[in-house]
């Protein structure tokens, strides 16, 4: 746990956009990332909320809303700090109730593409 936290912190501290800028300029990577995000991430972290307020239909978005209380966006597509190294740590080890994802589910390239997409998506939302 400490190792993971340490890696997460170092990624944030060293380079807020490490590994993202080049990918963000690559339209193919962004498009691929958007596709993977919508397929694999959006079912839990998507933007559309509905249902019973006590049990939101998108648990990932709702968990982050409760965690950050508006200080950090609950929507991943509005985040600017989810660089490829950060995503690799979270997705390969899991975090809280989000389990880890195997390389057969999400390849390393998929994760890089998601990071590229999130970088663009967050810019397009003006954050």
């Amino acid at each position: 746990m400490n190792l993971r936290y340490g890696l997460w912190v170092s990624c944030i501290a060293v380079s807020p956009l490490c590994g993202v800028v080049a990918g963000a300029e690559d339209a193919a990577a962004v498009a691929a990332g958007k596709s993977v995000f919508q397929l694999r991430c959006a079912p839990c972290h998507g933007a559309d909320r509905g249902g019973d307020p006590a049990h939101a239909l998108l648990p990932g978005t709702d968990a982050l809303r409760i965690k950050y209380q508006g200080k950090v966006p609950a929507l991943l597509e509005q985040r600017t700090d989810l660089t490829a190294p950060v995503l690799h740590v979270f997705l390969r080890h899991g975090t809280w109730s989000m389990p880890p994802f195997r390389k057969t589910e999400l390849s390393d390239a998929d994760i890089d593409h998601i990071a590229a997409y999130l970088a663009v998506a967050s810019h397009s939302t003006g954050r």
């Binding site: 079912p43 839990c44 249902g51 006590a54 049990h55 939101a56 239909l57 998108l58 648990p59 990932g60 709702d62 968990a63 409760i66 965690k67 809280w96 109730s97």
Partner: peptide
């Protein structure tokens, strides 16, 4: 198919500071 019920082991309004580690 959706992931709607994944709130069960997750951080919720009822449990804002924990998750169900032994789901």
């Amino acid at each position: 198919p959706k992931l709607y019920v994944w709130w069960m082991p997750s951080r919720t309004e009822e449990f804002p500071n924990s998750w169900n580690e032994s789901h």
